[in-house]
């Protein structure tokens, strides 16, 4: 009972600190089971409609990259050259008509498509993403994060809050440790 209360108090305090933080990019670090996802869910409730929470599951369906990212939203690749940059290091994924199925892309590629899908049209909301780069190696995740952080305005992200258990570092990110 006490442990539950302590845990709740810790989560609530961290949530308050995160909301009060002026930083636009916030990282929550901690080991597995430390309560990172609970904290994100908590924040989603506090922001009340202003935030969207995306869990770590990434589902890629049969269809082009464009379809997988936009899922019916009206943003064209031609109008938004930004999206072309996302897969700058993989030629075949630059082709918007490249047809995805379960067998022809890696978990890391799926994850990058999934994150872009979540943030591409944020309409000035707080984005809460759980373990966005868990399937990426350090170099790729650093490049990918750098790309997102540089383009926060273009993605219309008011505030980006993500969880990570990696040792990722970036001076633009205000990290909160949960342990």
């Amino acid at each position: 009972m006490n442990m539950n209360n302590d845990f709740e108090l810790k989560i609530n305090k961290l949530a308050k600190d995160i909301i009060n933080s002026d930083s636009r990019i916030i990282g929550i670090r901690g080991v597995s089971g430390s309560g990172k996802s609970t904290l994100l869910r908590n924040l989603e409730g506090i922001y009340c409609g202003e935030a969207i929470y995306f869990d770590s599951s990434i589902i890629i369906f049969e269809g082009s990259i464009e379809e997988n990212i936009l899922m019916g939203r009206k943003i064209s690749f031609e109008l938004n050259p930004l999206l072309k940059e996302i897969f700058f290091y993989e030629a075949r994924l630059q082709d918007k008509n490249f047809y995805l199925d379960r067998g022809n892309i890696s978990t890391g590629q799926s994850q990058r498509i999934g994150i872009i899908r979540d943030i591409v049209d944020s309409i000035n909301r707080v984005i809460l993403i759980d373990e966005p780069t868990s399937a990426l190696d350090y170099k790729t995740s650093t490049e990918f994060f750098n790309f997102i952080f540089t383009n926060l305005d273009k993605f219309c992200i008011k505030k980006l809050i993500f969880t990570s258990h990696s040792s990722f570092q970036d001076k633009r990110v205000h990290f909160f440790d949960i342990s």
Binding site: I52, F54, I59, F61, E62, G63, M71, G72, R117, D118
Partner: peptide
């Protein structure tokens, strides 16, 4: 089989407001 690969994405579509995409 094609629609079965798309159906699991419905929760994501609800979050981003594009359930019409799956209907289409």
């Amino acid at each position: 089989n094609h629609i079965l690969t798309i159906l699991p994405i419905i929760e994501r579509a609800r979050i981003i407001g594009t359930v019409h995409f799956i209907r289409d």
